[in-house]
């Protein structure tokens, strides 16, 4: 089967890969680029574990074809910390015990960062509705919402 040759950037680095038409971006990230931080929980866009940024938009990578990534900019959990420095959200998730099993955590962190980029001071309800597409079965979301709001506070310098 002839595969597509795709060039894109992932976390700022140029990448090239081959993929079949029906391979999703999630499969490409995990199986071709070996970036396993992006998780598959459902494969149907219902859980958000595979959340990544695509040209600055929050998307489920299971609902994007790998071939659609041609020329696009992808950001994944692997690019969230800068060197030794965790992103504020990552640090706040640790401090607030906002993760347990952690399988949903990469997707939630990516989604939360996208929220804070457009709304630096979200209300509790805004956090909850923005994150409604990210299922977490461990935490009951309580500490996740607290961590996001606390990270927002710190990022605002409040």
């Amino acid at each position: 089967m002839a595969k597509h040759h795709v060039s894109a950037t992932v976390n700022g680095d140029g990448v090239e890969f081959l993929c079949a038409t029906d391979q999703t971006l999630l499969e490409v990230l995990r199986d071709e680029l070996h970036l396993n931080g992006t998780k598959e929980g459902c494969g149907t866009g219902d859980c958000g574990a595979c959340s990544v940024m695509l040209d600055g938009r929050l998307v489920c990578s299971c609902l994007v074809l790998g071939v659609e990534a041609e020329g696009r900019r992808i950001e994944t959990i692997e690019g969230m910390a800068v060197g030794q420095e965790l992103h504020v959200l990552q640090r706040k998730f640790l401090e607030h015990a906002a993760l347990q099993c952690g399988i949903c955590t990469p997707g939630i962190l990516i989604a939360a960062r996208a929220l804070l980029a457009r709304n630096p001071d979200p209300t509790e309800a805004e956090v909850r509705y923005w994150l409604a597409g990210n299922l977490c079965r461990c935490t009951g979301y309580h500490k996740i919402v607290e961590a996001v709001q606390d990270a927002a506070r710190e990022m605002r310098g409040a």
Binding site: G45, G48, S51, L54, V59, C60, V64, A132, G133
Partner: peptide
């Protein structure tokens, strides 16, 4: 419709 992620596509 869907989540923020779904609406992104």
């Amino acid at each position: 419709i869907g989540s923020i992620q779904v609406k992104g596509r």
